[in-house]
Simulated assay, not measured.
Amino acid sequence: MHTIATPALWFVFGLIVVIALVIDFVVLRAGGTHKVAFKEAALWSVAWIALAMLFNLGLWYWLGGHVSAEVANETALQFLAGYLVEKALAVDNIFVFLLIFSRFGVSAELQKHALMIGILGAIVLRAILIFVGAALIQRYHWILYFFGAFLIYTGIQMVRAPNDEGDFESNPLMRWMRGHLRLSKEYSGA
């Protein structure tokens, strides 16, 4: 992988991500279990977007002192474009979260807690899948066709039965989890 960043810059980026997660979890714990109001959600969204834009500004400034202005501008624009694409894709995730929350009956007061745990799990699993997937694609190019076919299949399944909840209890994954993990059908506190 080609990168213009130094290991120190990657370390700073990783540190910023970890600090942001810690802040979010500390605030989550301090705020206790509560329903997140629109105003609170909007303020947090503005804060995280501002942090991303400050990071982009800092990246542009740092690159301006270490590489050409053209490379700094191009990299800052690429970051901005990538960030906007991720934000647009995050809207799709909201619908998935709402579906999961309604399917499992997660109350509005517990949704932020469940969301934070889900995001942390998603970060870890996404990192694993990116590295494993990149290695597989580099070694076996044909696997792209397999993944593409799988996406088409799941898309067709979603279109064919958009409101079909199916028998949740007979789902093979749920049966396996209930047999191997200590799961409860009821909530106990948070």
Rank of each mutant, 00 (worst) to 15 (best):
D92I: 14
L63H: 01
Y187M: 13
K35Y: 02
A108S: 11
G64E: 03
E169Q: 12
Q157A: 13
E169W: 09
S102N: 14
G64I: 03
R126P: 00
S45M: 14
T3I: 04
G189F: 13
Y61F: 07
V67A: 12
I4P: 00
A149S: 15
L125R: 06
N56E: 15
A108P: 01
S188M: 09
L28I: 03
R175A: 09
R126K: 14
M116V: 02
W44S: 11
A108M: 10
K185E: 13
H2Q: 07
M1S: 07
L173E: 06
S102Q: 14
L98I: 11
V132I: 15
L120M: 10
L89G: 05
F55C: 05
D164V: 03
N163I: 00
I119Y: 09
E70R: 05
L84Y: 04
M116P: 00
I128W: 06
V85H: 01
V18I: 15
G179E: 12
G14W: 01
A161W: 11
S45Y: 11
G82Q: 04
L9K: 11
R182K: 15
Y61N: 06
S170M: 06
T3F: 04
D92R: 07
F55E: 08
G64A: 09
G148T: 10
A50V: 11
V27P: 01
R178E: 14
L125S: 13
N73D: 15
E186Y: 10
H66T: 10
V46R: 02
V85R: 00
Q138S: 13
I49P: 00
A161N: 15
I143Q: 08
G189M: 11
K112L: 13
N171G: 01
R160C: 06
K39Y: 12
L151R: 11
A42W: 08
G155V: 01
K185V: 09
A72V: 02
W48D: 07
V159R: 02
F25M: 13
L181F: 15
L89P: 00
L84F: 15
G58F: 03
M1W: 07
W44D: 11
P162Y: 04
Y153Q: 06
A20H: 04
K112V: 10
A47N: 04
G118H: 02
G105Y: 06
A127H: 03
V27N: 03
V124W: 08
L80I: 05
G31P: 01
V96E: 13
L115H: 10
T33Y: 06
L129Q: 10
G65H: 12
L99C: 08
K39R: 15
R178H: 06
A88S: 14
G121F: 03
A127C: 12
Y153S: 06
A47P: 00
M158Y: 09
